[in-house]
């Protein structure tokens, strides 16, 4: 074998994205929802890196850096929200917090 076809890298990214999407839809615990979101963001980053190395351009890695910046910002804000929700409702069920009034 010489070299990895670009489709294979993109297929792995697509499969990771689909797994994350399924988890995002069927989990009810907020922690698991956040973990599925991390998997999906990671799949997007993998797709950027595959494109970057396939064309030998470093621009894709710059976009990957933006993706992990976004992931870090999202994780910190979302985890702070999870802590507040757990303090108020004593539960992490998304159905419990689905109404606007606390």
């Amino acid at each position: 074998m010489n070299g990895i076809p670009m489709e294979h890298g993109l297929m792995v990214a697509a499969a990771l994205f689909a797994i994350g999407l399924a988890g995002l839809m069927f989990r009810r615990n907020l922690m698991f929802v956040l973990m599925s979101l991390e998997i999906m963001l990671n799949a997007a980053g993998l797709a950027f890196i595959v494109g970057s190395t396939a064309w030998a351009e470093p621009d894709g890695q710059v976009m990957y850096l933006m993706v992990i910046t976004l992931a870090a910002a999202e994780a910190s804000v979302a985890l702070a929200l999870v802590l507040q929700i757990y303090r108020r409702f004593k539960s992490l069920d998304v159905d419990v917090v689905s109404q606007l009034r606390g």
Binding site: G3, I4, P5, L10, A14, A22, A54
Partner: peptide, 27 residues
């Protein structure tokens, strides 16, 4: 949800297999 995600994955994989991606990574 799993069936929906699997259908989405199938569409993505079909688009990748039938597309004209010819790049090879390595070397």
């Amino acid at each position: 949800p799993s069936v929906m995600a699997a259908v989405l994955l199938l569409v993505l994989l079909a688009a990748l297999v039938r597309g004209d991606v010819t790049q090879v990574i390595g070397g």
